[in-house]
Write a protein that binds this DNA or RNA. Structure first.
Lengths: 142, 142
DNA sequence: CACAACTAAGTTGCGCGCAACTGGATGCGG
DNA sequence: CCGCATCCAGTTGCGCGCAACTTAGTTGTG
């Protein structure tokens, strides 16, 4: 099982493959609503925090404006959010949920739970995985 | 720390963010050689297995021809591999390393070790993480 | 106040991922 | 041997990610 590709490499590939596998699990649930997984993540932040600047969305999701600007524009044309210039600082753009965007929260409310059930990990394993991924993120991003 | 976004959701996002963080760590090491992380993974398979069909590469990397065909074409124009039709089965395409592709193996030989050092996890934590990611992959992909 | 340094968002360009499809090769049942 | 389902790569189209750059607005400093 452990071949000569090296354990660390394997971990990195596993990360890469597992991440894609997880978003693949979300896809069939999000597709009917015309949402992608990153769009869903952006909506989650908005559901959680209310009106949010692009910059703050970027901090929460670890994405830059090069990714977020087109993504938010698509969410806007889909009718889920509006984008308005900030009043005090006109450089910023504040993203607001529309009724459509808010209503998605309820229709998708039990999604994470359903996903968790389809992934065969125990509660403890979820916590361990969460902890380890947090450490990877913590030691790599700063 | 655990807010109302739900633990499973957090794990999924952590996976998504950690995967991108890891490939970001590889980037500065691969960039000078004009390689991307997925290209590096494909080369690893070729280093490990020798001449390999596109289909087998897809199985190893969990990618389809829609992703691999252009990737391999770029590796070919970069001079690292050649692609030739299979002799017995002319549907298949066998990917061979060139001298250039083989030489990369030596220049990048200690890369995983260096990456592992820059990620502050213990040996045990690497093993745990590897195991948990394997379980996620195992329970989601089939 | 003037002006440089900085910042926020957007744009461009490129390489993935993945769905949907195409075309050529293979194999298998009749 | 023929026709038809199946399989392998490749192509197309679209949405990320991310680097590099642009534009517009803000802040700080003399």
């Amino acid at each position: 099982m452990v071949d000569d590709t090296g354990l660390e490499q394997m971990v990195c590939f596993q990360l890469y493959a597992a991440s894609r596998a997880m978003t693949a699990i979300y896809r069939p649930a999000l597709d009917p609503h015309g949402l992608t997984y990153p769009q869903y993540l952006a909506l989650r932040v908005l559901w959680h925090r209310g009106p949010t600047t692009v910059r703050e969305l970027g901090k929460q999701l670890d994405l830059d404006s090069g990714t977020l600007s087109p993504l938010l524009k698509r969410l806007e044309t889909a009718g889920h959010v509006t984008r308005t210039r900030g009043t005090t600082d006109e450089r910023t753009v504040v993203v607001h949920l529309t009724d459509s965007g808010r209503s998605l929260r309820e229709t998708l409310t039990d999604l994470p739970r359903r996903i968790a059930c389809s992934v065969d990990l125990t509660e403890d394993e979820f916590i361990q995985l969460h902890h380890l991924l947090g450490r990877v993120r913590g030691t790599t991003s700063p």
